[in-house]
């Protein structure tokens, strides 16, 4: 990543405390426009806390944060307009059909009816979901739900999409397909901020940060990290870091 590419997320000294427990301890990092940024860490390392703060679901205790070029304290609404979010539960409404879900999420982002119809048509075609358009979400397989949840999260063409453990619970083939979708989105210019605890997925990212106990223990490209820690895979990098 060259220095000429502008930062789309800037975080300086982010601290989040729950009582006396420090979930995020002075996090400082930048995400560059258009990259796939992996946010790694063990369960409870503070990944979800940080992603929630970046999405505006939770307030930081202190620190400077700018997302999509807007200040997270004073320009919340503008931040929200420019981000997409997909939670680890692939949250969609079970009792609505595929199309109704798309229409609803398009609607709350203020998309016009025409746009929604056009984009959902495109989306179904791309996913091969045409036959499932009017099926209830509860009747479609988990892998489809995951793809749909991601598509819905980027339906309004956000600058950044936050993915909170988007590949939990699906099979390796579906996971691979899902990463193809992520690449496609990145190719379209959407910055991808993804948390995961699958270390093989870390290899797919442009850069990764690894959190241990609320702190960022390492941040670089996967290749540089493997070289630095003299490890054959990201998995080994992670184990070395976590044991240190």
């Amino acid at each position: 990543m060259s220095a000429t590419i502008p930062n789309i997320i800037t975080v300086k000294n982010l601290v989040k405390k729950f009582g006396s427990f420090v979930a995020n301890d002075h996090l400082t990092f930048e995400v560059k426009k258009g990259e796939i940024f992996g946010f790694l860490g063990a369960n409870g390392a503070g990944k979800t806390t940080a992603i929630k703060i970046l999405c505006g679901l939770s307030y930081p205790t202190s620190g400077e944060l700018s997302v999509a070029g807007f200040d997270i304290y004073t320009q919340r609404e503008k931040v929200k307009r420019n981000i997409g979010y997909m939670s680890q539960r692939f949250s969609l409404y079970d009792d609505l059909t595929v199309f109704e879900n798309i229409r609803f999420y398009g609607g709350i982002y203020g998309l016009r009816k025409k746009e929604i119809n056009a984009r959902s048509h495109l989306l179904m075609e791309r996913l091969g979901f045409e036959a499932a358009r009017d099926k209830l979400i509860r009747d479609i397989p988990l892998g489809w739900k995951q793809k749909l949840a991601f598509s819905v999260a980027i339906l309004h063409n956000p600058k950044i999409v936050f993915l909170d453990e988007p590949t939990g619970g699906v099979d390796p083939i579906t996971r691979r397909q899902f990463w193809d979708m992520i690449y496609e989105a990145a190719h379209d210019g959407i910055t991808v901020f993804v948390t995961t605890h699958y270390m093989d997925e870390a290899e797919y990212c442009d850069r990764v940060s690894i959190m241990v106990d609320g702190k960022i223990a390492a941040l670089d490209t996967p290749d540089n990290l493997k070289r630095e820690f003299d490890a054959p895979s990201m998995n080994d990098v992670f184990i070395k870091l976590a044991r240190a």
């Binding site: 999405c55 679901l57 307009r81 979010y85 539960r89 949250s91 999420y105 709350i108």
Partner: peptide, 13 residues
Amino acid sequence: ELGTMELLLVSPM
């Protein structure tokens, strides 16, 4: 419970 509340809160609504 569904987790959709988070999605709503992330949206501009």
